[in-house]
Amino acid sequence: MTQNSHSNFPWNHVIGFILSIALTLLSVWIALYTSLSITAIIWIIVSLAIIQAGIQLFMFMHIREGEGGAQVFTMVYSAIIGVIIVAGTIWVINSMMHSMSM
């Protein structure tokens, strides 16, 4: 971002804001007002949430400034760890519940 754009109208923020409102409404509509399968709904709304998170990181949080490389790496690595924790736990626990009920 150049020095110049600081004094201009905050386009980044306005576009990001509009996008996040729109994406929120879109996921509400997909989740509650369509007749897609549960699996499809989960995939779509989780993807929309990830896009929204990206909007916050890149359009609001200036992630590429300062130690941009290290910061992006940190967020990517933590996202991987987060997915491992969530998906791994669900997989492992469901497997154990399943074998217990047999």
């Binding site: 290290a70 924790i85 969530v86």
Partner: peptide, 22 residues
């Protein structure tokens, strides 16, 4: 930079809470 790394730790923290919730 340190605060960004702290946010990484927060992601692990909320990830665990989400895992528990699901």
């Amino acid at each position: 930079l340190g605060f960004w790394i702290f946010l990484g730790a927060e992601i692990a923290l909320f990830g665990t809470l989400f895992a528990t919730y699901f």
